[in-house]
Write a protein that binds this DNA or RNA. Structure first.
Lengths: 132, 132
DNA sequence: TCCCCTCAACGAATGACTTCGTACAGCATG
DNA sequence: CATGCTGTACGAAGTCATTCGTTGAGGGGA
């Protein structure tokens, strides 16, 4: 396996997702960056972070610039695309394929600010118009 | 481990969730019921379903009536509670804790019927009123 | 009674994810 | 050059989820 279409990339695991989160925030990062952001303060070993990132690279989830001694990693998949991926997986597996059921649960149980509610309402209006 | 508070129940795995889905639909079911609903048509073995349900029973996810020769299983956790659980896990892990970000993604990428949109709007109105 | 069918129990094998120990390379400093 | 620091590579071990084969119990029918 040398290359892989983006659509084929495996779903990130728990630990991989946390690492992607750091890379999305920073744009890019070394193993040390990730280790300090995620593992250092709770005793996680440096090589644990390293190994995970090597695995992620093998899977194609991250790309690596090894022109520096400390290799620089960058996420291959965008945050939005990954969020969408997780979302539709969950709609299928947990909400019987009904996204609006999920939305109702999410709105009902979690808190949203007034601005967020406004934003949701605007999207709702647009959807309403489009579905005419 | 003999008993366990509901709140402590482990998050169902992929396969466990599918089995819970059958039990939620039917109210209860035997291993054979579950096997036929999920595994039979794709060549999955009977003992695979059995083992999974034994594991689920050991974890406390299902209860078992063994007064009949074919034990009858029933979900311990409700569908709604489980949906909520998965939802908030995902909000934390994938959407940086923002439920409304998740809602926006879900509304944007998935389809919803007009009735569903209406229902969402009503909930939105109520939330808006309450946040005053 | 004897055989067959359905069932639960159990253990083994596999594969994925995670964690960590060890080895080794490059570089700077004394 | 020797030492120490920072880095990558690699493999082993542990855990968990999943799948399946085998065994044995129990009940019904020939």
């Amino acid at each position: 396996m040398t290359t892989r279409r983006v659509a084929d990339l495996p779903k990130p695991t728990e630990a991989e997702l946390a690492i992607l989160g750091v890379l999305w925030d920073r744009g890019s990062g070394t193993v040390r960056d990730v280790h300090e952001a995620l593992y250092a303060h709770e005793g996680g070993g440096y090589t644990t972070a390293l190994k995970l990132m090597q695995v992620m690279h093998a899977k194609g989830l991250v790309e690596r610039d090894d022109s520096q001694r400390a290799h620089v990693f960058r996420a291959v998949v965008s945050k939005e695309r990954t969020q969408k991926r997780f979302l539709s997986d969950m709609v299928d597996r947990v909400f019987d394929g009904s996204a609006s059921q999920l939305v109702l649960h999410a709105l009902g149980s979690q808190s949203a600010s007034r601005e967020e509610l406004k934003e949701i309402r605007q999207l709702l209006n647009r959807l309403d118009r489009e579905s005419k």
